[in-house]
């Protein structure tokens, strides 16, 4: 936990000091270009790698009844048996995180009135689901708002979301709710790992690292917008220079900006090789993308060896005449030749 914090702090400090020392072009030009290339290439490599991996078994693990006999009610949302049903389940998974909605929590109640003693209670804890939704949607909106720096003219929908986001018109520059909520949601996701002993036990460096990184990104962004300030007209000119492949000088931009860019670059470059690839991975999960029709259709294991056995119909085809002569019963009777 502390190690990952240290790494993030180190990245931020190096970028900040480097930019202060006049190495802005390294952290503001080379690093973002490399990071974007690694991100795009890495995610495509991941997708191809997963697409090449065979799925030996149909494993659509679900929390509901598979389609069975007519009088047994099928859990249509959880256990779809058609392609369209799988698409619906996937859309709900991607946009509403349905599997997190079922986040099972076990708790020992020491003095239960019903049992007259200790009792184990299971329930679905919704906090993870709520904060995961909040985190992902806020992050998306924050990212989407940044398109005002990447595009000229700025698309109208960016303005619309900015208007909604800054609806309360608190202060100037207007306070954006998503920025604050993003920070709170990341804080919750971090505290969850620290406060719950069972989750803490299974948490590793690679679980804390992205959380610290995103916290650093959100923090430096909030800092730049509301506290330390920077000349955003110059920032836009600088970013448009990157977008149009003729970078301009980094002079006149606050070092915090380069710290922000460096942290985002590290996140992008880290993305394809970490758990963050669940963005692409969710579509490749056999438990989510296979229809639950295992009782109806046979799932062929792609690495099954070449068939070197005879099926009974093939056997009968080979020996039909001999079998008929011997008076053995046949599935498909021997056709009598005409004229005999």
């Amino acid at each position: 936990m502390l190690k990952s914090l240290l790494v993030v702090a180190l990245v931020a400090a190096i970028a900040w000091l480097g930019a202060s020392a006049g190495l802005g072009s390294l952290f503001g030009v080379v690093l973002p270009y490399v990071a974007i290339a690694v991100f795009l290439g890495g995610v495509v490599w991941r997708m191809v790698y997963w697409a090449k991996s065979p799925v030996p078994f149909a494993i659509p693990t679900t929390g509901g009844q598979e389609k069975s006999l007519d009088w047994i009610k099928q859990a249509k949302w959880d256990c779809p048996d058609t392609k369209w049903g799988v698409v619906k389940r996937m859309i709900l998974e991607v946009f509403l995180f349905r599997s997190l909605f079922r986040n099972m929590h076990a708790e020992m109640k020491p003095n239960d009135a019903v049992n007259g003693g200790p009792r184990l209670v299971y329930y679905s804890s919704k906090w993870l689901w709520v904060f995961a939704l909040l985190f992902h949607y806020c992050f998306f909106l924050v990212f989407f708002r940044h398109f005002r720096f990447f595009m000229e003219p700025v698309p109208a929908c960016v303005g619309f979301f900015e208007m909604l986001d800054g609806m309360f018109q608190i202060g100037a520059p207007r306070f954006y709710m998503t920025g604050g909520l993003l920070f709170c949601a990341v804080l919750f996701l971090l505290l969850r790992r620290l406060a719950n002993p069972r989750v803490r036990y299974i948490s590793l460096f690679q679980d804390y690292f992205p959380l610290w990184l995103i916290m650093g990104i959100a923090g430096s962004g909030i800092c730049m917008r509301y506290f330390t300030k920077t000349d955003i007209t110059q920032v836009k000119a600088y970013i448009m220079g990157l977008v149009q492949f003729h970078p301009i000088s980094a002079a006149g931009i606050d070092p915090v900006f380069f710290m922000h860019v460096a942290l985002v670059s590290v996140l992008l470059a880290y993305f394809p090789f970490s758990k963050l690839t669940h963005m692409a991975g969710v579509f490749f999960s056999p438990t989510r993308n296979l229809p639950c029709d295992t009782r109806r259709t046979r799932h062929e294991n792609p690495w099954n060896p070449e068939k070197n056995f005879l099926t009974y119909p093939e056997y009968e085809d080979m020996y039909r005449e001999a079998m008929a002569d011997a008076g053995l019963p046949l599935d498909k009777p021997l056709e009598k030749k005409s004229g005999e």
Partner: peptide, 10 residues
Amino acid sequence: CGFSSDSYKK
């Protein structure tokens, strides 16, 4: 989009 539009001027 950056390619298709004119080069950006501050």
